[in-house]
Simulated assay, not measured.
Amino acid sequence: MRPFDDIDRLANTPALDKVAAPLRDAVHKVLRRQDVKDALHGVWLGHPLHPVLAQLSIGSFASAGLLDAVPRTRRPAATLIAVGLVSAVPTAAAGWADYADGHEEQQRVGVVHAAANGVMLAGYVASLAARARGRSLRGALWGWAALAVGTAGATLGGHMAYHQAMGANHAEGYPHIGPGDWTDVGTVAELPEGEPTRRIVGDVGVLVVRHGDVVKALADRCAHASAPLHEGHLTGTDGSECVVCPWHGSVFRLDDGSVVHGPATAPQPTFRTRVRDGRLELAVTGYEAVPAS
């Protein structure tokens, strides 16, 4: 049996929803400001912020564990533990922001991940307290125990990121599987005016919005969690027309697919558009929008 099979059991345990759902709702109540949420998701960075910050925390704790193996270096180990504890605050904030916009299976694993990290942090607080009383060996033992629990928590985090694709770019494949050649998708006249609609181009779905003879097109599968963007609604932001994801509220500009608001951090792939003899043709362009002709 693979270790991940046990973690999958957590994801398929509805009983965890009794804890996961209230925590999700609490995070949404606390994180009301969109600019704060965007910052914690990592919209400004172009990919999730939480894994970046986690490297500092777990790296500090792991380094402290190595220094604790040598009695003469246990004092600098305390400094690293302090750094890890301080950096854990923004790390946890970013993690909770991502957690609140995950799906149920991710949140079930997420609450166990958070619990393990909480135990780890409590262990490191106890480690610093012991060191402050001059009991360096006891402090080292607390630190190693905390690191063991933290390693288990990090394993759960890795499962969420790589096995459950939390934070991954779910639209990344469009430039590789979408047709690069012009593909006829029907007449322009049959497209509703100013409303999101869906067309199939090759093997992929495309969000299409028409205003007169001007047509804009993005990958229909939301980069955050694969939601169908054509089921969302249009809005205006800073003079640009945008589409709002129907599941978690990510906002993308129709002109170039760029992210206006998270939780998505990766842009939507765009499609070239052209009208010939009253018929619309589309071709994938990747992440650089080409003006409609």
Rank of each mutant, 00 (worst) to 15 (best):
M1Y: 12
R2C: 05
D6Q: 14
D8M: 14
A11I: 12
N12W: 13
N12S: 14
T13Q: 12
T13C: 11
A15Y: 05
D17L: 00
K18L: 13
V19P: 05
A21Q: 13
L23Q: 12
R24W: 02
A26Q: 09
H28K: 12
V30Q: 06
V30C: 04
Q34S: 11
V36L: 15
H41G: 04
H41M: 10
V43M: 05
W44Y: 02
Q55Y: 09
Q55E: 10
I58G: 01
A62C: 03
A64N: 05
L66H: 06
L67D: 03
A69Q: 10
V70K: 09
R72L: 08
A77F: 08
A78Y: 01
L85Q: 05
L85I: 04
V86T: 08
A88R: 06
A92G: 14
A93Y: 01
A97P: 00
A100M: 01
D101S: 13
H103A: 15
H103F: 05
Q107F: 00
R108K: 10
H113V: 09
H113Q: 11
A114G: 15
A116Y: 09
G118H: 09
L121R: 03
L121M: 13
A122F: 09
G123Y: 10
G123V: 06
L128K: 06
A129T: 11
S136G: 08
L137H: 11
L137I: 14
R138S: 11
A140E: 07
L141K: 08
L141E: 07
W142A: 01
A146S: 04
L147T: 00
A148W: 06
H159D: 06
M160V: 07
Q164A: 08
G167F: 02
H170W: 08
A171S: 15
Y174P: 00
P175S: 14
G180M: 12
E193Y: 04
E193L: 06
G194S: 09
E195A: 12
P196N: 06
T197G: 07
R199D: 04
I200D: 11
V201P: 01
V201G: 02
V201F: 12
V201R: 02
D203N: 09
D203T: 12
V204C: 02
L207P: 00
D213G: 10
D213C: 03
D213L: 05
V214A: 13
V215G: 04
V215F: 05
L218I: 09
L218A: 05
A219E: 10
A219S: 13
C222R: 11
A225Y: 06
L229I: 12
L229Y: 09
G232T: 06
L234F: 14
D238P: 09
D238C: 14
E241Q: 14
C242I: 14
C245S: 10
C245A: 14
G249Y: 13
F252H: 13
D255L: 15
S258P: 06
A266Q: 11
A266V: 05
P267I: 04
T270V: 11
T270L: 04
T270R: 09
L282N: 01
A283Y: 03
V284C: 04
T285G: 01
Y287Q: 01
Y287C: 00
V290W: 14
A292V: 02
